[in-house]
Write a protein that binds this DNA or RNA. Sequence first.
DNA 1: AATGAATGAGGCTTCATTCAT
DNA 2: GATGAATGAAGCCTCATTCAT
Lengths: 202, 202, 202, 202
Amino acid sequence: MPKPTRTRRRTDATVDRRESILDAALECFVLRGFHGTAIPEIAKGAGIAAGTIYHYFPSKEAMVNALFRKWKGEIAQRVLTAFPAGAPVRDQFRVMWRTMTDFALSHPRAFAFLELHHHQDYLDDESRVMENNLKDFGALMVMRAQQEEQVKPGSTALLMELVFGAFIGMMRAHWDGRVELNADQQAFAEQACWDAIALHRP
Amino acid sequence: MPKPTRTRRRTDATVDRRESILDAALECFVLRGFHGTAIPEIAKGAGIAAGTIYHYFPSKEAMVNALFRKWKGEIAQRVLTAFPAGAPVRDQFRVMWRTMTDFALSHPRAFAFLELHHHQDYLDDESRVMENNLKDFGALMVMRAQQEEQVKPGSTALLMELVFGAFIGMMRAHWDGRVELNADQQAFAEQACWDAIALHRP
Amino acid sequence: MPKPTRTRRRTDATVDRRESILDAALECFVLRGFHGTAIPEIAKGAGIAAGTIYHYFPSKEAMVNALFRKWKGEIAQRVLTAFPAGAPVRDQFRVMWRTMTDFALSHPRAFAFLELHHHQDYLDDESRVMENNLKDFGALMVMRAQQEEQVKPGSTALLMELVFGAFIGMMRAHWDGRVELNADQQAFAEQACWDAIALHRP
Amino acid sequence: MPKPTRTRRRTDATVDRRESILDAALECFVLRGFHGTAIPEIAKGAGIAAGTIYHYFPSKEAMVNALFRKWKGEIAQRVLTAFPAGAPVRDQFRVMWRTMTDFALSHPRAFAFLELHHHQDYLDDESRVMENNLKDFGALMVMRAQQEEQVKPGSTALLMELVFGAFIGMMRAHWDGRVELNADQQAFAEQACWDAIALHRP
DNA sequence: AATGAATGAGGCTTCATTCAT
DNA sequence: GATGAATGAAGCCTCATTCAT
């Protein structure tokens, strides 16, 4: 039984088309960046006329922001949903790492778009807010781990950024074909990053 | 014996102007990216006419490649020069980390341009080769450290990319104002990254 | 015997909708001109979908011509209906002036559209013919007045155009807020225009 | 001996080209209006590439405003220069009328552009100010004539607008081929308009 | 060598019109 | 009839590049 989709103006066909535009845009933006991508390229990728894009987005900037928010929201939601609230910190870290890895491997272009490109130029305020949601969550986890004395005392933000950076570096190397990422490698990397922040006591 | 500089003599004035163009370009590219920057903007930044740029670079693409190589070469040379060949691995790591930090802090725009932007689109083959010089060097160091059993056994490339990624993440957070980077913080981050790859024995 | 209205019957609803389209178009054309007005704007003003307009008019040009003819016909009909055929010329002039003033004041947008805009671009032949109906009638009146030696001998057309132009100038100044138009002012202007053409004898 | 033209950046060639653009634009705007004219049409008329226009005007709107001010200023200057300050009012009126007629006949397109089109849409504030300069001057003349009891008492603005409107009506009829304008006709029309506002005493 | 006006292709966006629903 | 999504030509404007001075 199909659920009575949405308000009205967004029929299934409308949503599908909108998504296909976002997909095509993602493909282009990852390859050539926002400024390097022409609207007709995206339209061709989505199999529609250039003008049609403007039925779904008022401008190229609005489109890139919608794309950014779509995927930034998606990844944040996955991490938050998967997070094992009551589990030991070490497990929380592992789950979070795995969730992000799973996402990045199953949506490589989305991840590349989100994390490998500089967006300062065209993101609006709402998007900028989302930018930091995930990091804020990660910082919270690190901070609690510090309180439990399982993670080094010191700048929470710095530790979190190191781990996040390492994760992105790993993924970038993967896309570029410089490192494989089988299950062992993933676990190995995860452990290394934990070691980076873990409090090592005698 | 230094070879007699290229096909044609380059006067000091010529070199200076060329550099001022590259500086202006750097400024623009960091802010708006390659595709988002117009040649006249760069010319204005350099205090010259737009047409003059074409006396120094045959095209916008050639210019961005020259810029990329200039700074990628600069950072590589610094790291190589500073590298303490005979010192213990732990010291080598520290020196390398510090050298890169010093560079990134004293040339923030150059570092941002090199590491925070996606260049796939316009880099030529020669630039692409340079892209990996530093990482190759880092990988070599890690490999030797593995042989000395001071760094975890496993994928050398992966370990190196994690450290590099963490470094970039730290720097990005610094530019964005999310973390401070005083001497203590720098040392703290360096130690954390060493812990990530170090072989912890009982 | 009136012919049985065109090829197809027009229901009241059809006529109403057609009128509401013309009203909305009038509003837009006065503000931004024909070329400056988009069909969807008119549709929105009429509270219908853009495509619907094409059930009533085959094209934007056809619509603007219909609009022009509607109002040009309306004003002509009023003047002709009100015209006191047997009255003295001075009275005829006064009635005609008043009729036009009444129309212009009660349908300001229609008058502005008709007389304050340049239509050369898009009017078809049929509309162009109507353009001059009123002036021809005015010219006829002036000519008879000349025959009665109450109006200066000389170019009938020129006298008529002067009066018409003065009338339009007065109205334009009124729309623009530069002159008030109470009953006294209207009478004052009418007298001035009569003086312009009247034959003043010693 | 050529005078040392202008500041610098406006060389003779530059000025000429700018003028040729304005001339071409005038031609187009008179025929099809501002919104009905495409930049490439103007460029073709001026014999240059479309992009070149943007070296002389930052936008189409800026261009139409420059055009408006150029001609509005020209006509105002002519009228003011020709005005016989100490002469009898009747002569002042005649001179002003003739000056405007001469201008309108020798620059028909400029006059048509200025007075036969609706500009509300795209004129900026500075242009709007110029719009009324000439009328203000005319109103002043009328007011003094009223003080001398040679022109009817009553709304100065209204009288002036009637005359101005009559003048425009005459010119429009001339362009449209409905009235000739030889010297006799011009004098005839001028006298008629004077009669419109003159105070007729027994 | 330096300039900056000129070019014209190409970018983003609008819009009259069509057509499947 | 009514709708409004879709189209694609065309509009305004930008910009890498050239070239006469």
